[in-house]
């Protein structure tokens, strides 16, 4: 039998299927708004990929912003708990998890068993979230996959000091007009989000190892600047967008096993 974790985020639905030996059989990330339909669609896709059907899945846990939109879930947990579990599985040495999602950012303090000890969220302000980077990418027109190299190349970092995404956008545009080298601007954008997020995380306070997860973790420029800001070597989760779904699947397995006994 298999178990499933579904993470219905505000910009994407993610799913992980585990077998009873705790191995990941499949994972899918599908950009979508949170809804019952997207939950169903992503579930079906993940099953189809591995020629499985719904009756092969014994237990389903839903998490994320839209977790109430998964009527076929057996249980719901918050994404805080699920990210903690997921990271503990992938990187057991981690004690501080930083998740930068599309619309929010979180810092979670976890025990060596992946238990949540403390957490802080920011969902009021776009400045420390994926949204900020999207806005900037829109202005600069450079794919995120290239940001890592550009930041590494930058001889200095432009200052983007606005705490507000809208004003920061103006700052970036003005830097472009002033012909500041692109890599320096991108370094500045990465540093800006890094500062916001590290200020949030430092309130926990930070304990090593620290890892970054969530969609933004693919952006090596942000990873570099965030590591600098925190003064640590920042670990990055494999499958960073799916750690929540993974944690949900691990909870599903735990609950399923408890039921069996």
């Amino acid at each position: 039998m298999y178990v499933t974790g579904i993470d219905i985020g505000s910009v994407a639905s993610k799913i992980v299927i585990l077998d009873e030996e705790r191995d990941v059989i499949n994972y899918v990330v599908m950009p979508a708004l949170p809804s019952e339909e997207s939950a169903s669609t992503v579930f079906s896709k993940a099953l189809e990929d591995k020629s499985l059907s719904r009756k092969d899945v014994a237990y389903i846990v839903a998490t994320g912003y839209g977790r109430v939109n998964v009527p076929f879930a057996n249980k719901m947990y918050t994404e805080i708990l699920c990210h903690a579990m997921g990271i503990n599985y992938l990187l057991p040495s981690v004690r501080t998890v930083i998740d930068i999602g599309g619309q929010d950012s979180k810092a979670i303090k976890i025990s060596n068993y992946g238990r949540v000890e403390n957490f802080i969220m920011n969902d009021k302000c776009a400045a420390g979230t994926g949204r900020f980077l999207e806005v900037m990418q829109g202005v600069l027109g450079v794919e995120f996959s290239k940001w890592g190299d550009l930041v590494a190349k930058a001889k200095s970092t432009a200052s983007i000091s606005s705490v507000c995404t809208v004003f920061a956008e103006s700052e970036v545009i003005s830097k472009v007009t002033q012909k500041v080298p692109l890599e320096e601007i991108i370094a500045g954008v990465c540093e800006s989000i890094a500062i916001r997020v590290s200020q949030l995380a430092k309130r926990l306070p930070i304990e090593r190892d620290v890892c970054l997860t969530g969609g933004v973790a693919y952006n090596k420029g942000v990873v570099q600047k965030l590591g600098e800001s925190l003064g640590v070597e920042l670990l990055v989760a494999e499958i960073p967008q799916s750690t929540g779904a993974l944690g949900a699947a691990l909870m599903a397995l735990r609950n399923y096993k408890a039921l069996k006994n």
């Binding site: 970092t157 432009a158 200052s159 983007i160 000091s161 500045g188």
Partner: peptide, 8 residues
């Protein structure tokens, strides 16, 4: 560290 705005 970035060059911040320096006041006048």
């Amino acid at each position: 560290m970035a060059q911040q705005f320096v006041g006048e």
